[in-house]
Structures are given as C-alpha cells and as structure tokens.
C-alpha cells in the first residue's frame, strides 16, 4: 500500500517534469530567433518531456501490477529517446549543408542591423 502510494507520487513528479519541459520547449519554439535554436527547443520537448512522461506512465503501470504494459511503455520511451535526437540531427545537418546561416548577435557580425 505504502509502496503503491510512493510509486504514484513518483509518477506525478515525472509527469510534472515532462509537462514543464513541454512548456519550456513550446515557449522556445515560439520565442527563439532562428531555425537551429528552435530545433533545439523542440527536441528538448520530445526527449526530456515525452521521455519523462513515458517513464512516469511505466512507473504507474508497475504500481498497478501491469508489468507488461509498463515494459511496453518503456520500449516506446527508448524508441523516442533514440529517434527524436536523430531526427533533429538530420534536420539541422540538412539545413547547415544547404547553407542556412545560424543567427548571431549584431555585434558579432560587425555591428550591422538585423
């Protein structure tokens, strides 16, 4: 009983952490200046946000005794952790190879205006 309560509290904390990263990532996508930094923000959403929410759901499954369901959710988490950074890497690489300039501060570019 006590273990169940602890596991449910762990789930709540993990889901809250995931939601926080989703919020931060969304704000980043809306506020950051150029493609590269936005990709970086969106990837934080996917890896940390979705990863910790899925981890929380796996713990929830374990607390209810659904070990197979929990294991399936863990496998999905591994897949997300593997595929999302790869997709972000491929996107950023393709953008860099086609010659998209990263955003730099005006001072670093010799003081000209944006």
């Amino acid at each position: 009983m006590l273990i169940e309560a602890i596991l449910q509290a762990v789930t709540a904390v993990l889901v809250a952490v995931g939601l926080f990263f989703f919020l931060v990532g969304t704000v980043g996508v809306l506020r950051l200046p150029d493609f590269y930094s936005r990709t970086h923000a969106a990837t934080k959403c996917d890896t940390l946000g979705a990863g910790s929410i899925l981890l929380g759901l796996a713990v929830l499954g374990a607390s209810r005794g659904d070990y197979t369901d929990g294991l399936k959710v863990l496998v999905i988490a591994v897949l997300v952790l593997l595929s999302s950074p790869t997709a972000a890497h491929a996107l950023a690489r393709a953008a860099f190879r086609t010659g998209l300039e990263p955003y730099t501060l005006p001072e670093a570019r010799g003081g000209e205006d944006r």
Binding site: L79, L82, S83, T86, H89, A90, R93, R97
Partner: peptide, 15 residues
C-alpha cells in the same frame, strides 16, 4: 551522392 550522416545511418540500421 551527398555525404551521409554516420549518426543517422547507425540509428536507422539499429532500428
């Protein structure tokens, strides 16, 4: 024939 990213190739081969 553009150079391929080793990271993408590796992850795709793994999945």
């Amino acid at each position: 024939d553009a150079p391929r990213s080793p990271i993408v190739s590796f992850v795709v081969k793994a999945i």
